[in-house]
């Protein structure tokens, strides 16, 4: 019955891809804060597990046969609420979370301490007024934080045993960095988007990360957030979301945009717009990008999915009768969408 109720609505003429309901994970705890996936190895078997977070705890879910799931472990956190899960690519038995009130105040690792004793632990990575954080390849984490007088941007690494290793300082721009993305296809290149709508490019192969260039996105779409970056044919392509964009006649109501930058000149051009489905009222609230797939929760309570290369909306999950959608995340591949509701329910869809 649940599958039938939550069947995605395909838009007219866009029937190449679709979302198929797979499973529902229901935790007894309240409001879902975030959801993610992590590779987890225990008792000699390695599986892609789901991690769900509410304000006071984080749960690890293990797949069973026939699309069923079992809650394996719950980390109870302290008084500071969980704000987000920070996915770490290519890691196993390690979850990173950000905690805070209005903004991130600390970052913690949650990990399996010993597979033999099946014991779990958590450790503090960083504290401060943290504005943005991203998990990088090779068990690294980049973050931006502000003190009263300056901004600090840095990378910390984690050893196999869960200890934080020496950090790396990145040259900060004047304005606050609000999001990061690794540049696919260019080792040691990292981009960030700032509070005044610039894209900052770093090289992180030295002890001090060089700030290579800063390029302006343009004033039409303020407060752009970078989700993904890749290099192709001498250009830097950045996927941006626009939580504060206004509707226009030419572009509709844009949720995501692919922009091509020439890093040598700083000039840019918009390549593709992914707008809200025609006739769909509301705005972009929050979303996630994996490969060429983007998903976003809209103010209407629906989740929309786009093919970023085509600029087409390919599927729309209407608000569930029991509650609006609150979270949309891709699993480690774009083949699976994790959709969270405000009451803590998480639904898995095959895409």
């Amino acid at each position: 019955d649940a599958a039938e109720e939550l069947a995605p609505v395909l838009l007219d003429g866009l029937r190449e891809e679709s979302l198929q309901f797979v499973s529902k994970l229901k935790d007894s705890s309240s409001c879902a804060v975030d959801v993610s996936t992590v590779w987890w190895e225990a008792a000699g078997s390695r599986a892609l597990c789901v991690v769900t977070a509410c304000e006071s705890s984080v749960c690890l879910w293990q797949p069973l046969a026939s699309d069923h799931w079992r809650k394996v472990y719950t980390w109870q956190l302290g008084e500071i609420p969980v704000i987000q899960i920070v996915p770490l690519p290519d890691t196993c038995n390690l979850v990173c979370i950000a905690l805070g009130d209005l903004e991130i105040g600390e970052i913690r690792w949650l990990l399996l301490y010993s597979s033999e004793s099946d014991s779990f632990k958590q450790s503090l990575v960083k504290t401060g007024n943290i504005k943005a954080v991203l998990g990088l390849q090779d068990r690294r984490l980049v973050s931006s934080s502000r003190t009263a007088h300056e901004q600090q941007v840095g990378i910390v690494s984690l050893s196999e045993t869960g200890r934080s290793k020496d950090g790396q300082t990145l040259m900060p721009p004047e304005e606050t960095v609000l999001a990061f993305a690794e540049v696919e296809g260019v080792r040691d290149a990292l981009v960030g988007t700032t509070a005044v709508n610039s894209v900052v490019l770093w090289s992180v192969n030295l002890k001090t990360g060089q700030l290579l260039t800063k390029m302006h996105v343009g004033y039409s779409y303020p407060a752009s957030i970078c989700h993904r970056a890749y290099s192709d044919s001498g250009l830097l392509f950045v996927v941006l979301s626009h939580p504060h964009a206004k509707e226009s006649e030419s572009c509709g109501n844009p949720a995501f945009r692919v922009v091509a930058f020439n890093p040598r000149t700083g000039r840019s051009t918009g390549v593709m717009f992914s707008s809200l489905p025609p006739g769909h009222a509301g705005r972009y609230l929050e979303g996630d990008v994996k490969d060429a797939c983007a998903a976003a929760v809209l103010t209407s309570g629906a989740i929309a999915v786009w093919d970023l290369l085509l600029g087409h909306c390919t599927a729309l999950l209407p608000p569930d009768p029991e509650g609006a959608w609150a979270l949309a995340r891709w699993a480690t591949t774009s083949a699976c969408l994790l959709a969270g509701q405000q009451d803590g329910t998480v639904c898995l869809y095959r895409y």
């Binding site: 260019v186 290149a189 490019l201 090289s203 192969n205 030295l206 001090t208 060089q210 700030l211 290579l212 260039t213 290099s231 044919s233 001498g234 250009l235 830097l236 091509a260 930058f261 020439n262 890093p263 040598r264 000149t265 000039r267 840019s268 051009t269 390549v271």
Partner: peptide, 23 residues
């Protein structure tokens, strides 16, 4: 995207910018 819009394009932009940037 054309060079007239974006200026001269270099396939080695990352190496070139890294060499030019202050350490």
């Amino acid at each position: 995207c054309s060079e007239s819009d974006l200026g001269p394009i270099s396939l080695n932009w990352f190496e070139e910018l890294s060499a030019e940037a202050p350490p």
